[in-house]
Amino acid sequence: MNLHLWGLYCVTVFLISASPGPNMLHIMSRSVELGLRGSFPAMAGCMSALVVMMTASALGLTALLFALPGAFEVLRLAGTAYLVYLGIKAWRAPVTDEAEETVEFERPGLSRWAVYRGGFTIAISNPKALLFAAAFLPQFIDPAQPKAIQMAILISTFAVIETSCYFTYAVGGRGLAGWLRRPAAQRWFNRVTGTVFMGFGAMLLRSQKA
């Protein structure tokens, strides 16, 4: 892989990663809820899911999966249901009189593993990411050079850029935390977040395999 092709890949990945999506919204909302450090497991969960999907694509497993009749539809409906569930959950989230500056992981349901699992689930539940990996990565592979090394470079580069965008969104979310001490602001944020999640679900439901 030459430097020009790699540079083009970096720019493309940055533009895609920086765009708002379910992963970025989830990480930002976790940062608001748990603080910057508390959002790290969510970042790790989202990233590990994406690396799994990109590796599966590199190994040809994605093509095999989508060759199975109905597989894409099942994944699409499952992903839609999960995003809608997150939207409803955000709408119904309780509002407190005084938001905490920090949130301890000892609270029920907020262990590091639970936060990681939430990030992994939201990223892995989007079948469009599988299609993206299958269609996008091969465009930057030089068939005259070893494929495995190139795929390793592409996936590693993607992980670095995507993680940087995660951190940026998390910092932005933490900046909102002070403003969200007010109950009315918390309620507004929860409802906007819930609506956006349900909107992502509706977009996924309308998407087609092609």
Rank of each mutant, 00 (worst) to 15 (best):
A44H: 00
A44L: 02
A177F: 14
E104T: 10
G45V: 09
C165K: 09
K128Y: 05
L59N: 12
C46P: 10
L36R: 15
P41T: 00
F167A: 15
R76P: 02
G35M: 11
S39V: 09
N126V: 01
Y82T: 01
A42G: 14
R107P: 12
Q139M: 12
A159E: 07
M54T: 12
G35V: 06
G79R: 10
G173I: 13
L15Y: 02
L131Q: 06
V13G: 08
H4G: 05
G119W: 04
R117M: 07
Q150N: 09
G60N: 04
S31R: 12
S29A: 07
N2F: 14
Q150K: 12
S57L: 08
F200Q: 07
Y82N: 02
E104M: 04
L180Y: 10
G175M: 13
W188H: 01
V52P: 10
I155K: 01
F189Q: 11
Y169H: 14
A148R: 13
P183A: 08
F120W: 06
L5Q: 07
P108W: 03
V32I: 15
V84Y: 01
P69D: 06
S156F: 14
R206T: 02
R182W: 05
S17E: 06
T195G: 14
P143A: 12
Y169D: 14
K128E: 01
R206V: 03
L59D: 13
V103D: 03
T55I: 15
L205F: 02
L59Q: 14
A185V: 03
V32S: 05
L68V: 07
L64E: 06
I88L: 08
A152R: 03
T121D: 02
F132P: 01
F140M: 15
M47T: 13
S19Y: 13
A144S: 06
Y9V: 00
P127M: 11
W188R: 01
S19F: 11
A81C: 01
E73W: 08
G7Y: 07
E104W: 03
A67N: 02
S17A: 13
A56E: 14
A134V: 12
E106V: 10
M151H: 05
V115A: 11
A152K: 01
L5C: 04
D142E: 12
Q150T: 08
T12M: 13
A114G: 07
V11K: 07
L77C: 00
M198Q: 04
R206N: 08
L86S: 05
F197W: 09
L77Y: 00
F66R: 01
F40W: 00
A67G: 09
V171P: 15
R112D: 00
W188P: 00
W113V: 13
G194F: 09
Q150P: 11
L137P: 08
V11M: 12
G178P: 00
E101S: 15
R92E: 10
F158C: 10
R187Y: 07
L83R: 02
L5W: 09
A90C: 04
G45C: 11
G201W: 10
L180T: 01
S156K: 07
M198P: 03
G172I: 10
M47H: 11
A49D: 02
L36K: 14
P138N: 03
V115T: 13
A42D: 07
G118V: 10
Y116L: 07
A93W: 14
G119T: 06
T96H: 03
S164N: 04
A63T: 11
F72C: 00
M53P: 05
Y9K: 00
I149M: 13
A90I: 03
P127H: 08
